[in-house]
Amino acid sequence: SISSRVKSKRIQLGLNQAELAQKVGTTQQSIEQLENGKTKRPRFLPELASALGVSVDWLLN
């Protein structure tokens, strides 16, 4: 799922939720909701993929 991929990649990069949120241009709460499965397809998906160094396709599939 996107939530597990985001969380595992974030941890692999040594980032906390607030640091990832800053790179993406969103809030820590938005990252938390995404990782908890409350958000399925965030509006900041391209920025998120870029910050994590992955493709949008990788996040979604």
Rank of each mutant, 00 (worst) to 15 (best):
S1H: 10
S1Q: 10
I2A: 04
I2M: 13
S3E: 08
S4E: 15
S4M: 14
S4D: 14
S4A: 14
R5K: 11
V6N: 00
K7W: 06
K7Y: 08
S8E: 12
S8Q: 14
S8P: 02
K9D: 00
K9C: 12
R10S: 03
I11F: 08
I11L: 14
I11D: 06
I11S: 08
I11C: 09
Q12T: 08
L13R: 06
G14C: 07
G14V: 03
G14N: 07
L15T: 02
N16D: 11
Q17M: 10
A18R: 15
A18D: 11
A18P: 05
A18F: 13
A18H: 12
L20E: 02
L20F: 04
A21L: 01
A21V: 01
Q22M: 12
Q22T: 10
K23P: 03
V24N: 02
V24A: 10
V24P: 01
V24C: 13
G25M: 05
T26A: 08
T27F: 05
Q28D: 06
Q29I: 11
S30C: 15
S30P: 02
S30Y: 15
S30G: 10
S30M: 15
I31T: 02
I31Q: 01
E32P: 01
Q33I: 08
Q33M: 14
Q33D: 15
Q33Y: 11
L34S: 02
L34N: 02
E35A: 02
E35G: 02
E35D: 01
G37Q: 05
K38R: 12
K38G: 11
T39C: 15
T39Y: 13
T39N: 13
T39W: 11
T39M: 15
K40G: 11
P42G: 05
R43F: 14
R43D: 13
L45V: 08
P46H: 14
P46Y: 14
P46L: 14
E47C: 09
L48N: 00
L48C: 02
A49I: 03
A49D: 00
S50A: 14
A51P: 00
A51S: 07
A51D: 02
A51N: 04
A51R: 03
A51W: 05
G53S: 07
G53L: 06
V54C: 06
V54H: 01
V54L: 04
V54D: 11
S55A: 08
S55P: 09
S55H: 08
V56Y: 07
V56R: 05
V56F: 08
D57R: 12
L59C: 02
L60M: 11
L60R: 08
N61T: 08
N61D: 12
